[in-house]
Design a protein around this nucleic acid. Structure first.
Lengths: 237, 237
DNA sequence: CAATCTTTGTACGGTACCTGACATAACTCG
DNA sequence: CGAGTTATGTCAGGTACCGTACAAAGATTG
């Protein structure tokens, strides 16, 4: 285990003895696997290594909106460390992948020691908070084209891929819009040569171009998710 | 000090010895006082007892949107406990009031003890996260009338008042809309007999009615902010 | 390979909110 | 009390996105 072939940002930053105490177990995530469901007890924490999962709020009318993304930097279930016993929101896989999991009890015990694990978990919660707050502002002020571009970029970053299977229908759900709106908006990005796609598969062609088409929110969120383990990242400076 | 005449939810839940270690100092907040500014170092934590403060994200074009509200339940600056040295967002008073403050160092020392203060601070961060996530969804899906009603109710709850000085201009900034849109929307609520207002002063007349005019987001956020100190609130059950 | 299902393109009337402008009313200060 | 300032009402043209519907094209199944 020791000097870690981990791809997960948080696990990679931990010493071997901490890793051992967490008693990690490898897990696979198929597509659309429900990792958390609102109201269900959280009994394991998940550290993604590959793949991507979304957290969504579901409204009474059944519609949902994405409020957070999880990739190789993630710890899913941190709220269990914050005194919440039950899951707040739905979390499910958008891109199949794998990672590690541990028991909440082991994580809590390690958290209470007040060492690196606590520090990193708290920093990650902070990053999640930034993500949610920036999204709140973004959803209020920015256009669909900007938000779609932002989503595609973040997704690609989180999962370390530039091609992924996702339908317009799902994108509409994530962004809180309608499917036809996504189709036209995606069409615009396609005509601009920034992406290409066919039936459920999207391929990103031009990252700088997409970044320009998106809003400042992309880089702000990316920065926090990429750098939360570093003490003197651009975040803190 | 002991059995606490505190109105602040978190302070009220702490034992006298913890309170003493925090070395609180009373503070007054005039209107539009800037408590935190993005990039500035956080050197004190603030516990509001009366009044209300908003946290906003500011975009490059100068516009801003509210991403969180602080009232008698609040701890402003918790992110300093999470390993962030500098403030993430602007926080400033919307309704003048007062409260207590303590040095970040004292709060950090207390936090590290892993007792009640840590537990409550983490629970509060959790509540803030819920607030931000719910706002993200709400801003994407709900109408201006719903969101205005939600804002007015939350504001009244946080500050324990049913009348407050706020202009349409400011409301527009908070909700991420335009002033004329607020004017017409507020006019609708007024004609429905839910609120009344004159030049910068809003008075809430009918809370149940406003609740109906708002979206589910109001009660969800209110529930978390009201109950985060209780272990078995509706949140966790 | 026909039948079905899923995904995408597209169109069209409707609505919510924007943008900017102008008018009015209330408060403030000289 | 008159002049300036601030807050609100309102309007009109424009745009972004909704809501719904339907057609077409790729994928899947029997």
């Amino acid at each position: 285990m020791r000097t870690s072939g981990f791809k997960n940002t948080l696990l990679k930053a931990l010493d071997g003895d901490v890793i051992e105490r967490l008693r990690l177990q490898p897990v696979k995530f198929e597509l659309k696997h429900e990792i958390e469901n609102p109201g269900n007890p959280i009994d394991r924490l998940y550290f993604l290594e590959e793949g991507m999962a979304s957290m969504t709020t579901t409204f009474k009318d059944g519609s949902q909106v994405e409020v957070g993304m999880f990739g190789y930097e993630s710890v899913i279930g941190v709220s269990a460390l914050m005194g919440t016993k039950k899951s707040l929101n739905r979390v499910y896989t958008q891109i199949a992948g794998h990672g590690y999991s541990c028991q909440v009890e082991d994580a809590k015990r390690e958290f209470r020691l007040g060492g690196a694990f606590q520090f990193l978990a708290l920093r990650y919660v902070q990053a999640q908070l930034v993500q949610a707050m920036q999204s709140a502002g973004c959803n209020a002020k920015h256009s669909f084209e900007q938000r779609l571009a932002r989503w595609l970029l973040l997704c690609a970053d989180r999962a370390h891929v530039d091609t992924f299977k996702i339908s317009h229908e799902f994108l509409a759900d994530m962004l809180g819009g309608r499917r036809p709106t996504i189709s036209t908006t995606a069409g615009i990005l396609k005509r601009k040569g920034l992406i290409e796609y066919t039936r459920g598969e999207i391929h990103i062609l031009d990252v700088p171009g997409l970044t320009k088409a998106s809003c400042e929110c992309y880089l702000i969120i990316k920065d926090y998710l990429d750098n939360y383990t570093k003490f003197d990242s651009t975040i803190t400076s």
